[in-house]
Write a protein that binds this DNA or RNA. Structure first.
Lengths: 187, 187
DNA sequence: GTCTATAGGCAGATAGAC
DNA sequence: GTCTATCTGCCTATAGAC
């Protein structure tokens, strides 16, 4: 037989891996199915054996994003995490970065499936922060939500401004702000 | 003569007024020139008597955005300003709201003209905050930049999540965070 | 200055070969 | 399962009438 039994599954993973990166680099509307499939080493026609539509791909790409992933964020303390998140490196490499910093505004205008996948992602993100803070309750803490918003907003604006000095200053101010937002008991 | 002498100028203003609102509601890519011109009461063909291209319109629409404008934000204190900015009303009415909360990510992927117009807008925005804080120096303060990032990031995520409870909690946490970010001397 | 009409290009989705 | 070829619709920009 011409295809191994897990061939389809591997193709699907390749498509998702390409999609996650390219969507974050260029936005949903700036990416065609041809772009994603070409990056994954296939052609457009084969796409529909894996996903129903472009919107379906978007939802699955988002659902497969994890703040825990292969990134080097595991054992660091929260301030170290914030140093990496609110950094020039993260600013300059959106494709390997956080989907919230790259896609939040397009998601706000997307369908329910996509917004649900994003909501779940944000929950996982905030849970990571709460773990750093020592909060192990069920509900997300206000501190975690505020720190997340600070980091996401900062990286976004640092990417958008045209002035390198202002971009650097935004990042610096954002890192400081995370410190100010730490609850007093979490030192 | 069939047209008043200021007719062209008034048409241009109508186009810009429609563009500012529609772009913030649906994003640059989600809006066609037909949409803008239709909203302004004209047809597509007339557009190019006013702007060279869609990108040109985007840059001029952004350049004409002001945080000082006709909005009811004038005389309030900074916390009052933050209450209005980080509110359910602002979340639910992006068309009348801040361009940074609606367009930052698309701008990060736009041409230099657009990014320059955005950078200038952010400077004016941060200057308003610095005025509230009593900072009248030439450079923007870190506090103003951080408060701006907090507000912008919070409203964006509150718009994108699919869970009304989580959206409300994000707004509440974001408003609290602005308080924590106030410098100690500005009480 | 603004209109209608159209040129030209691109992208999402499908059909059918292998 | 993936390929090439194609249908269909939409959008930017231009041409030319009024």
């Amino acid at each position: 037989m011409p295809y191994a039994s897990d061939h389809k599954q591997k193709s699907r993973e390749k498509i998702l891996t390409s999609a996650r990166r390219i969507f974050k680099e260029r936005g949903f509307d700036g990416v065609t199915i041809d772009d994603v499939m070409g990056d994954a080493g296939m052609t457009r026609g084969g796409f529909y054996a894996h996903f129903r539509s472009k919107g379906d791909l978007i939802a699955h790409a988002l659902a497969s994003e994890g703040p825990d992933e292969q990134k080097p964020w595991g054992a660091l303390e929260l301030l170290g995490f914030a140093e990496l998140y609110v950094s020039a490196d993260h600013r300059d490499r959106p494709g390997e970065g956080c989907p919230a910093a790259a896609l939040t505004q397009e998601i706000a205008r997307s369908d329910d499936e996509t917004r649900t996948a994003y909501t779940d992602f944000l929950r996982r993100f905030a849970e990571v922060i709460d773990t750093y803070l020592g909060n192990d309750g069920n509900a997300l803490s206000d501190d975690a939500l505020a720190i997340m918003a600070q980091m996401v907003g900062t990286v976004q604006m640092a990417r958008a401004v045209n002035d390198p000095m202002m971009s650097t200053r935004l990042l610096k101010a954002g890192r400081q702000a995370v410190e100010y937002l730490l609850p007093p008991e979490a030192d």
